[in-house]
């Protein structure tokens, strides 16, 4: 089986923002949610998850808060900032435009 392609640059950020747009989550939950939603198609190692989250946090797109998790342990919960929400909308629209353009190109019939 060939290795699934690496995520397109910046796509991981988009996915993380989208997941956090639904509800604030801690790192492990985000990782679970990613696996759940995308199945095996997108393989995001847990190792790349945290640096990506920290980068988004330092960029001001998401913000973090220490709260007690469902198991009674303190965990770092991430949530979207307003800037992050705006950025997500922008990037989503941009993604749609990009993918539909690519689809149109790929839909061309050979003659």
């Amino acid at each position: 089986m060939s290795k699934p392609p690496d995520l397109v640059q910046g796509t991981l950020d988009l996915l993380l923002l989208k997941i956090l747009a639904l509800e604030p989550l801690h790192g492990w939950a985000i990782s679970q949610r990613l696996k759940q939603v995308s199945g095996d198609e997108l393989q995001v190692s847990d190792g790349s998850l945290y640096p990506a989250l920290h980068k988004l946090e330092l960029g001001g797109w998401i913000t973090a808060e220490w709260k007690t998790s469902e198991l009674g342990r303190r965990a770092k919960f991430y949530s979207l900032t307003r800037a992050g929400r705006r950025y997500l909308e922008q990037e989503t629209a941009h993604w749609h435009r990009l993918t539909s353009a690519i689809s149109r190109v790929l839909a061309l019939k050979e003659t």
Partner: peptide, 24 residues
């Protein structure tokens, strides 16, 4: 550039509270 306002606390923390960051 609203996001910079959100970024300030995390950045300040990263620069000033090194030990806190490590612990987190």
């Amino acid at each position: 550039m609203g996001r910079w306002i959100y970024a300030i606390p995390a950045r300040l923390k990263a620069i000033l509270l090194r030990q806190r960051i490590e612990r987190d």
